[in-house]
Design a protein around this nucleic acid. Sequence first.
RNA 1: GUCCCCUUCGUCUAGCCCGGCCUAGGACAUCUGGUUUUCAUCCAGGCAACUGGGGUUCGAAUCCCCAAGGGGGCGCCA
Length: 468
Amino acid sequence: MSNVRTRFAPSPTGFFHIGSARTALFNWLYARHTGGTFILRVEDTDTARNSEEYLRVIYDSLRWLGMDWDEGPEKGGSHGPYRQSERTGLYREYLQKLHDAGRTYEKDGAVWFRLEGPRRTIRETYKDGDATLDRQVEVVDAAPVVIHDLIRGDVTRAEDRDFVLVRANGEPGFHFVNVVDDIAMAITHVIRGEDHLSNTSKHIELYKAFGVTPPTFAHIPLILKTEGKGKMSKRDRGALIEEYQQRHFLPDAVRNYLCLLGWTPGDGREILPISDIIAQFDLSDVHQGNARFDERKMAHINQQYVRALPPAQIDTKVTGILESAGLVTGATPPAHLRAVLDVVREKVGALENVPTLFAYLLRDDYAEDARTLENLRKKGDPAAKVAALLPALERLAGEGRLVDGAALEAVIGEIAAASDEKPANHFAALRYAVSGLNGGPHLHDIFRLLGAGKVLARLRKFAATAAR
RNA sequence: GUCCCCUUCGUCUAGCCCGGCCUAGGACAUCUGGUUUUCAUCCAGGCAACUGGGGUUCGAAUCCCCAAGGGGGCGCCA
């Protein structure tokens, strides 16, 4: 055990952003690495965007990614309550301290924090989105403060304007509650996104006003859009953790990838168990530059994790996915399901593709890939090929040898040779006729799983589409 | 506009702190070949970077300065 106390302090917004997940992760990792305490605190001061449902999203996402908290909502702890909406008494108390120290004043119904230093009024242009505003503002020549940052070293910055502590509607503002709670919860390390770095001088001013030594800071790099300008926003593809849950990514894989965004394991491995990551993780090794999100790399890592899964676990996951896609029901014969799983297991990469890749084994109405058909037609009408093969295959079926790979190969080779073509095209035509796809398990495996009746029915149906 | 942070292959990065072992390494992506009569996997190989300019030094990706570029803050959002 150590005295390290980190916290993740999200506000309930209804979604869980990948940047938030990574911030939570680094806090969690550092706490686990040091044997410290990881605290979850919900910053729900903005009552307008607050609901129980939104809180669930946070809890579920954290748990899905395997980040357990030692103190926080649904867990308790000695520094609670852990929802800011339940801590108003504390904020009143701390506001009084600032008031008594003469560091507050009221303006437009809000309570402001008074910076110390000479004041003057300036006129400035300020960019707000696309608009450029021209405004008058009172600035303060406050003494610069130093932010001790484990990732960026000492950062010196002078805050130059007063800020709101309590809004006119009575709700305390972010900077104020954030600092008060970090003090009250005895947070030792504040690990957050670099977008907070400039605001940290406000926080240092508050710590000074309270007469409290600030915690150690660690401002981690941001996650940028895959393409284009700026950081990942919730509208970007891949920005929300929910998406990965829905797409059946493995949480361990997502978490592993997130670790790689802004940090590199010292031993050179990229894919490694969380216990090894915890052992190696340190804030001083976190990068300074922002990282671009790359879903392809995450997909690759995910695939590695899927392939490393024990067969029984793959089966369980695949079955669940097939069930939720309506492909496997109570009516599905268990023996058939087992046989399907045996071939799926060998072929599976991304779990999200399982339904589209294997529907034809479980149902007669399945999607056919138009591009595959198009490509096949470039090498001659595939339906004509199937029609040419049909009599021989029917004969094979009659002998019960349709699933015999060698026999199948011999028959197809013979017919192909007769028309002076490569057998591969005939294989592809048959495959398309029974699966609507251009790849998958061995043809004789597909035939075996479908059974001669279905195979011949599908072949006849497809052969009938041959141009005359 | 202003303040703060950052800058190695297309992307994530190793190396940088403690200059020479860097002909700059790995991974993803991509391309080529092999395995698989398919697809996926797997294997082998290729393409590809020290932002620019000054300095310091016998020697700089590594140290210093400037510029440019990127990111973020400047809200009675968090």
